[in-house]
Write a protein that binds this DNA or RNA. Structure first.
Lengths: 184, 184
DNA sequence: TAGATTGTTAATCGATTAACAATC
DNA sequence: TAGATTGTTAATCGATTAACAATC
């Protein structure tokens, strides 16, 4: 039987053993004085976090970033399945070769609703990000991961939105470096 | 003279006016009873956060994601400049057309040091992420943005590391959706 | 047993939010 | 002036860290 200690798990994840124990204990009991039972722990996490279901996601915007994500293997065997791609440029849709069904952007509400897609990934230019978000929400998504360098104004407060932008992350690092330099 | 209130700024950024005021006040004074003086505020942020310097960054791993970032216009006029790209596949380097100088991965330490590159973006496969990080650190980078689905073990504690992975973000959204469903 | 490790309660920390005097 | 808005102090909140009894 395989086991792992909170210390070892923390090492792998880059956090302390305290946090590991606290977080796991919230889900139930999976360990004893020999550490955590890996099989039991996996089950506990799967159940507790809802990873026993596979949720469908779609990608809106098939530019460089969007197609990079689309082609990243679609996360096989994971908790997420990419079920559709959208772009406003019809030509781009036609020249694309993938197993994932592609549609024009205006169809977002229809397809999202029809296929019960729950998560949306926004990789369109900043100018069309808000419209894209609204179409996704209209279709009924419950969560949005936004890569466009704009903060999405959430019209439906029960939809979770996470904003991520590469440049902002680099700026953040730059600020940390700068603060450190000034402290020296 | 253009002004903006903390309420309006918070609206744009999706946070409260309290946080805006608190954060800005840390940098100095930029407003009065008419709101913030935009020009003054920009100056204050630029100085306070070190955005008056441009820091160089490099991209290690020119697969789909890496080349998407490389080609994203190199953030013109921003606080960050992409100054080099690296890949372990020599063929890939040769077939690439870009203004940004490209080098084989083994040269990372040399080039980073030579060109005083301060930030590194890791877009290599998981298996080579740790090695890539070590090469970047060897060259002297001060911050790393890691897209590989592995937590980088930081051998140099004075280097800032931010881990980001698309699938994890989607999983996070999935968990939020799941918790909400269970609460209902 | 002795030593290692969990699960949980308490303490600490930092960030967000609230409240409000000061300003013009 | 009256109303709007900042800057700052105090209160709240949640997450991380510390500490330790219980377990085998």
């Amino acid at each position: 039987m395989y086991t792992a200690s909170s210390f070892r798990l923390g090492e792998i994840m880059g956090i302390t053993s305290h946090t590991i124990r606290k977080d796991i204990s919230r889900l139930g009991q999976a360990g004893d004085e020999n550490g955590y039972n890996i099989g039991l722990l996996k089950e506990l996490i799967k159940k507790g976090l809802g990873f026993d279901k596979v949720r469908k996601a779609c990608i809106a915007g098939l530019g460089r970033l969007g197609s990079a994500i689309l082609n990243s293997g679609s996360f096989p065997g994971q908790q997420i399945r990419i079920a559709a791609g959208f772009d406003s440029n019809i030509n781009r849709l036609e020249t694309f070769s993938t197993d994932i069904p592609l549609f024009p952007a205006v169809k977002i509400p229809d397809i999202v609703r029809r296929d019960a897609i729950e998560l949306g990934i926004i990789t369109v230019p900043a100018a069309s990000a808000q419209l894209t978000a609204e179409r996704l929400i209209e279709g009924g998504v419950k969560g949005i991961l936004n890569f466009a360098p704009v903060v999405i104004q959430n019209t439906a407060p029960d939809v979770f939105i996470r904003n991520f932008h590469v440049l902002d992350e680099l700026r953040m690092l730059s600020v940390l470096v700068n603060m450190k330099e000034e402290a020296e």
